[in-house]
């Protein structure tokens, strides 16, 4: 459909962008929900909250995945999402070890 000469920066490396969205996006979704289960409203001991948290992973992930194509390149997508991942995981486990 789209010839290579017409493709624009956003369209290049769709595969890299997709992979970044799938993997880094999923990692970010999980850690966001991790923050929620410890610091969100309600006790972590409640099984209901665990179920809700499980439901919450998917929308976080899907939003990142749908937005990843806005990055100008696959490299940039990996760079940004990757550093957000590292940052969030470091702060999560740091906070948990201090608690």
């Amino acid at each position: 459909m789209t010839r290579s000469n017409r493709s624009t920066p956003t369209q290049k490396d769709w595969l890299q962008k997709t992979l970044a969205g799938v993997f880094a996006g999923l990692a970010i979704a999980f850690v966001c929900v991790g923050f929620f289960v410890w610091y969100g409203p309600g006790s972590i001991e409640s099984g209901d909250k665990t179920q809700f948290a499980m439901w919450l992973v998917t929308p976080f992930w899907l939003v990142i995945l749908a937005g990843v194509y806005l990055f100008p390149s696959g490299r940039r997508a990996w760079l940004v999402l990757g550093s957000i991942t590292v940052l969030l995981y470091c702060s999560f486990f740091l906070l948990r070890s201090l608690a």
Partner: peptide, 27 residues
Amino acid sequence: WTVIVFAFHDLIYDGLTPFYGDTPMFA
């Protein structure tokens, strides 16, 4: 949303386990 959760809920629970540490996910 619901179809993805219906299909993969077991895997997502597995993915969440590390964040719970020693706290049980279900009492």
